[in-house]
Design a binder for these strands. Structure first.
Lengths: 367, 367
DNA sequence: AACGAAATTGAATCATTCG
DNA sequence: GCGAATGATTCAATTTCGT
């Protein structure tokens, strides 16, 4: 469903495919309006025979060193131009993903850094079914590289740590992702039965990217939309999307694809939340609400003892302070999470005080 | 053993460690004299504050002076300078490997291309046991990237396709390599018991690089020699090597290491291939299967001797026990990996018993 | 001595809120 | 804007400790 958001002066054409050159189309969009950009730029400019120098003269042969240098210069200029626009469009806490192979990923990564993007991870998409190297002259090219970067150092980028951990059977998600290439019924065909796009990315790849680094309702831009994998997965996941694509043939395939896609229901979209998103509960509230009594003793796993005072501070031996401060002092540690450090005696058992905090949070949700 | 080759006007100081700055030392070497360069330059990590594990222990960060640069401009200038010298030293059909992380690999790759090197593959070293992301703020940084490039487009680089295929159990070697990081017995320690170098690379990595892209007798240069992994593996594999290292402490460790290393014989080379998650093989099986005879002597790198008994235990001086226990006792160490500690005499050479274990595992796989 | 538990460690750009 | 306070967070392999 097409909708528009007004951000400052200009409107944001949500959930549409813009027809045109990505740099020109990006220039028309309002700055600081996009949460995430996913970009799969062309890497084979020098092989297409349509390479132009910055002055628009045509490059003929690309075999000698001089033309090679020109080839990189032209590619770098192109990269610099679209990344500059991309950066302008991103919200301050926005982020970008780019994907490429050894032909272009080093130019992309270097330019990202030079422009001030802050690389968060490089990620390797390890293909479980790559094309072999038929001539036996090199290693099988079995991976592509993605770069995940925030708009600037210090930005508060979105990272759904727990959701990705869940996707990985409870173990922290690593920087190497094993996923099959896009084949079978997922691979879009044109009217002639041939593949509609030469480098269609698998939905599983975008699924992991969008689940991990966006939230529902975020705006995702793909300036090299192709047949619309980014839009399709964004729609399924309840994210808004904008695509830019120059080739009419790709746009047609993408439009039809996106019409077919359905958004997941709300329960499906919910992901494992991080504890960081839970509301803060001051320890003093446990005393105020009578879950703990002043004068009662707390104890740690390793037998340390402290007494609760009426103002929610603790006393132990020679020290007074918050549950965190006293815990850290008793352990000789630089810091300590008092919520997980202390327990209280209840019905003959040690009950972690974090359980009491969860009770309060449950009450807060119900009201 | 040190030897020199005369190439044109200047001599090549084979199998020695040159003390000094890599750029200056490379300038003294004759052009077109090197077959392969392996370079592990500083990564320019740009670490900020301390990082603690969840148990409050402090992570031992790489904060050495040699990794400090004022910014990307300084790092790029450094990269440009040493790559220029590296390219001058390579024979026309020579090649280079560089290794890095997302902090520096994009600068390295872009500069390689700009100078006219021709990238053959990027290779991902997927670490089986990386350090986790303790704060849950990013993906686990579980890989490093290597770039393999010939001196120029069209060069006839060395690629031992069949050898790598053998290393990979008969399947074409891919661009992603799963190898453990360098720990345990292989990790070199200083006099203080601390790691001798913060970023020592595993020998298995260099083994694969050198088997795949050099021939016996080739000259391998490592301009960032560190504690000499490149030299050690080159020596084992019958390649000549040259190391350049600025820090005297690293050179000392490397010299001692290289004195200990022995060149493999051909049989050993064939077997000492891939290390992966392998089934446990009790030492006693080597005796049961006749790969070792009761009464035969084992010896360690530093000349300790022990006799094999029929039950798979060892006897040395005043002590009896497993290969691990006897090794630990002789070293006065609390523990010892007997598999890498002991060798047996075969055809006039010392053969690590780990090679025999690999033979058994190969048989287990085949049946 | 043997086994299992506990401790150690690795190229790391590793926080957010409140006053 | 800045300093202080709160509080969230780890995997695999090896080595050392304890029963």
């Amino acid at each position: 469903m097409t909708k528009t958001l007004t951000t400052g002066a200009a409107a944001l054409p949500l959930n549409t495919i813009l027809a045109g050159d990505c740099i020109e189309e990006m220039r028309r969009l309002p700055e600081a309006s996009i949460d995430l950009i996913f970009a799969d730029p062309p890497y084979n400019l020098q092989l297409r025979g349509d390479l132009h120098r910055p002055d628009n003269s045509l490059v003929d042969a690309v075999n000698d060193a001089w033309d090679q240098f020109t080839g990189f210069e032209a590619y770098d200029a192109f990269t610099r131009a679209w990344l500059t626009e991309a950066r302008r469009l991103l919200k301050p806490n926005g982020a970008i993903w780019v994907i490429g192979s050894y032909h272009n990923i080093f130019r992309l990564g270097a330019e990202l850094q030079t422009q001030g993007f802050w690389i968060l991870n490089d990620v390797v998409w390890r293909k479980s079914n790559p094309m072999p190297n038929f001539r036996g002259k090199r290693l099988t090219n079995a991976h592509e590289t993605l770069i995940w970067a925030s708009r600037a150092e210090g930005a508060r980028y979105t990272f759904n740590y727990e959701a990705l951990k869940s996707l990985n059977e409870g173990i922290q998600m690593r920087s190497d992702w094993v996923l099959p290439i896009c084949t079978g019924h997922e691979r879009l065909k044109g009217a002639d039965g041939q593949k509609a796009h030469p480098t269609q990315k698998p939905e599983a790849l975008l699924h992991r990217v969008l689940v991990g680094t966006t939230n529902p309702g975020d705006v995702v831009l793909d300036p090299f939309f192709g047949t619309g994998t980014t839009g399709a997965v964004a729609k399924m996941l309840g994210r808004d999307w904008i695509g830019i694509e120059r080739e009419a043939a790709y746009r047609e395939v993408a439009e039809a694809r996106l019409d077919r896609v359905r958004r997941y229901d709300r329960d499906t979209l919910a992901v494992s939340a991080s504890k960081r998103t839970e509301p803060r509960v001051p320890f003093g509230q446990l005393v105020e609400r009578g879950l703990l009594r002043p004068g009662e003793m707390l104890r740690s796993m390793n037998g340390k003892i402290a007494k609760i005072r009426a103002d929610g501070t603790l006393v132990a031996d020679d020290v007074t302070g918050s549950i965190h401060q006293v815990g850290a002092h008793l352990e000789g540690a630089p810091s300590c999470n008092g919520w997980t450090y202390w327990s209280v005696r209840r019905e003959g058992r040690d009950l972690p005080i974090d359980v009491l905090r969860q009770q309060i949070r449950a009450e807060m949700r119900d009201t």
